[in-house]
Structure formats: structure tokens, C-alpha cells
């Protein structure tokens, strides 16, 4: 089934953070499929990053580059955007997907873990937004999608810290949308539900079943389910949509 044939992203440059696995990788593939030049990003494995670059090159006729950078490091982010500027000279699409998941009940949240969560999931998004928006302004606008989570909207037991970082993304997205609308830069967020990625693959069968039981559509979501929502938000199908939170959760209740 190909329901996105009317979307044409050719000539546009897309940077997807955390794009060597899971949702980010699915987003990179669908944006490449629709013609965008792709800049992949991974944190720590040059081998995986190079392998993913090869996969995009072999399947899609689009320019592709890879940037190894930890989004929690502002200097690394700065270097990444300098590289985008020197190699592509523009940026049209940013998908802030990189994130870390650490579950802990309220009394067990340690300072180091708390800092790690906020530096990656929240500060990383802000640093990336700062540089991306300046590049986008130069070419008359762009579209930014920040990946939040259903737990950022609804909260969840055992995820006080993680959900706080994902809730922060909602505030960031709404505020940045207001600040950047005049520059024709749209900022939206996607809030995925229970998605079949490495992050949830380690869960026990019992917990998986419990989660699936709370999903109206009765199945776990795929990274591609989320990627299609991102595609809509970065495409010209949503040119008047900004500051919105799009849930992609199959009707999950938590």
C-alpha cells in the first residue's frame, strides 16, 4: 500500500536525529522514499551509521550523509549544523527523534539518570531547534517535528522523569511554533504510543500484553505508523499546521 504518492520532497534537505534505529530510521526511509535528501544521525556507532547510509543509497536515489553526534552535547550539535551548512547549504526538515528511555519509580530516580534524560530528550531538542531554525530562515522556512510520547501527554507510573522530558517537548514545540511562525517555520510534535522499537523489545511478555490490552486497535504500533505521521507534518499536506501535538497511539489509554 502506498498512500503517500502525492508527496514530493525532492530538493528538500532533512536532518533526522537518532535515525539509525527504530522510529528515526523509519522516518529517514519514508522521507528518502518521497525524495528528500537525508542526513542521518547516530550517537555512538560509526559502523551502524555507515551501514544505514549504504542502505539509503542502495534503495533511494537521493543524496545522503551521516553525522555521528550525541545530541546531549551542545558542541557536537553545533558541529553537526556547521557540517550541514557546509555540505548542503540549507535545511528544510528537522525531525528531533533522538532520545533515551530510563524507567524508575519516583523514589528511585537518581541525579545522574535525571540529568541524562533531560540533557538528551529536552536540552538536545532545544539546541537542535536553535541551529536548525536559523538555517531554515535563510531559505524561507521549514518544518520541524519533535518526537514526544503518549506518556508526555498522559503521564505514566514508573516514568516520572522520562514523561517530564517528553512533556517538556510539548511545551517546546508549542512555544517554538509561536516564535517561528513569522519565519514560515512550522513546529509540531508527534506523541507515539506503544511502538515496536528496541526501547520496548526488552519488556517481558506480561508487560507487553498489558500494554497491548490498553490499545483500542489491539496491536502494537510500528515505527512506520509513526513515520507516516511525521511525513504528513513535514510535507505540503500540512502547510497551515503548526504548534500541534499529533498522537499516534492506536487509541491507547494509559
Amino acid at each position: 500500500m502506498k498512500s503517500t504518492s502525492s508527496i514530493d520532497l525532492s530538493g528538500r534537505v532533512a536532518f533526522i536525529t537518532g535515525s539509525t534505529r527504530g522510529i528515526g530510521w523509519a522516518v529517514a526511509r519514508i522521507l528518502a522514499e518521497n525524495g528528500a535528501a537525508i542526513i542521518l544521525n547516530g550517537r555512538s556507532s560509526p559502523e551502524r551509521l555507515h551501514s544505514r547510509i549504504g542502505e539509503i543509497c542502495s534503495r533511494f536515489d537521493v543524496p545522503v550523509e551521516g553525522i555521528l553526534a550525541d545530541v546531549s552535547d551542545p558542541r557536537a550539535i553545533s558541529r553537526a549544523y556547521r557540517s550541514i551548512h557546509s555540505q548542503f547549504g540549507r535545511l528544510d526538515i528537522l525531525v528531533n527523534n533522538a532520545g533515551v528511555l530510563e524507567d524508575a519509580v519516583l523514589g528511585m530516580i537518581g541525579e545522574a539518570g535525571l540529568r541524562r534524560l533531560f540533557e538528551t530528550n529536552t536540552a538536545g531538542v532545544i539546541h537542535s531547534l536553535q541551529a536548525a531554525s536559523r538555517l531554515m530562515k535563510r531559505n524561507g522556512g521549514g518544518s520541524i517535528v519533535n518526537i514526544s510520547s503518549i506518556v508526555g501527554v498522559e503521564g505514566n507510573r514508573g516514568q516520572v522523569a522520562y514523561s517530564a522530558t517528553k512533556a517538556a517537548i510539548l511545551g517546546i514545540s508549542k512555544s517554538a511554533a509561536k516564535e517561528l511562525a513569522g519565519d514560515n517555520i512550522r513546529v509540531n510534535a508527534v506523541a507515539p504510543g506503544f511502538i515496536d522499537t528496541d526501547m520496548v523489545r526488552n519488556l517481558s511478555d506480561t508487560i507487553r500484553k498489558e500494554n497491548i490490552a490498553r490499545i483500542g486497535m489491539g496491536r502494537i504500533g510500528s515505527p512506520e505508523d509513526v513515520a507516516r505521521a511525521v511525513l504528513f507534518l513535514v510535507s505540503d499536506l500540512s502547510t497551515y499546521v503548526t504548534g500541534q501535538i499529533l498522537g499516534v497511539d492506536g487509541g491507547m489509554v494509559i
Binding site: 551542545p74 553545533s78 556547521r82 551548512h85 539546541h127 541551529a131 536559523r134 538555517l135 530562515k137 535563510r138
Partner: peptide, 15 residues
């Protein structure tokens, strides 16, 4: 001002 400077000199400044 930052936008103007970055555009005129074709640079990207750090935060």
C-alpha cells in the same frame, strides 16, 4: 542581527 550576520558572511555561529 545574528541572522543578518550569518547570511552576509555565510557562517554558522555557536550558541
Amino acid at each position: 542581527l545574528i541572522s543578518e550576520i550569518e547570511e552576509i558572511f555565510d557562517v554558522m555561529l555557536d550558541t
